[in-house]
Simulated scan of single mutants.
Amino acid sequence: MRPILSALSLTLLLAPNPGAAASFNCTKTGLAPDEKAICANRDLNDADVRMVTTLHLLAGLFAMGVRGNMMDDQASWLKQRQACKADVACIRDAYKRRQGQLDQIYNNIDRPI
């Protein structure tokens, strides 16, 4: 999975859209404190790109029920990230936890031998 995600992430990072992270527009007014921190920090922006890319990849692999559960988990996670406000370390930890959860989902997919 790492080569696929790396290629997708690189594609998203190289795409000409300087004012956007993967999941929201950094140029819009009224950004929440966590969003402002993500837009201002390249590492957090990259973590956002990777997480959203992984989520979209996984969403395309599963039927509606599993996909719905994944999106419910994502909504819960987003509330946790928002609770970090502008705390960069807290946001970074939130991304690490969520990326780990998504990687676990991918690693547990049954594959033919």
Rank of each mutant, 00 (worst) to 15 (best):
R2V: 05
R2D: 07
R2H: 05
R2C: 00
I4Q: 06
S6K: 11
A7W: 04
A7Q: 14
L10P: 00
T11P: 00
L13H: 04
A15I: 00
A15Q: 10
N17W: 01
P18A: 09
A22K: 01
S23D: 12
S23P: 01
F24R: 01
T27L: 12
T27R: 13
T27Q: 14
K28H: 04
G30V: 11
A32T: 13
P33V: 06
D34Q: 11
K36E: 12
K36G: 04
A37E: 04
I38M: 07
A40L: 11
A40Y: 02
N41Y: 03
R42S: 09
N45T: 13
D46P: 00
D46S: 09
D48Y: 02
D48M: 09
D48G: 07
V49M: 09
M51H: 00
M51T: 06
V52H: 08
T54K: 04
L55R: 11
L57R: 10
G60C: 12
L61N: 08
F62C: 02
F62L: 07
A63C: 07
G65C: 05
V66E: 12
R67T: 07
G68L: 05
G68S: 13
N69K: 15
N69L: 15
N69G: 14
M70R: 05
M71L: 15
M71F: 14
D72E: 14
D73V: 04
Q74K: 05
Q74T: 15
A75E: 11
A75W: 03
S76G: 08
K79N: 14
Q80G: 06
A86C: 05
V88L: 02
C90N: 07
C90V: 05
I91G: 01
R92T: 03
R92P: 00
D93A: 15
R98T: 02
R98H: 06
Q101P: 00
L102Y: 03
D103H: 03
I105F: 10
I105L: 15
Y106M: 09
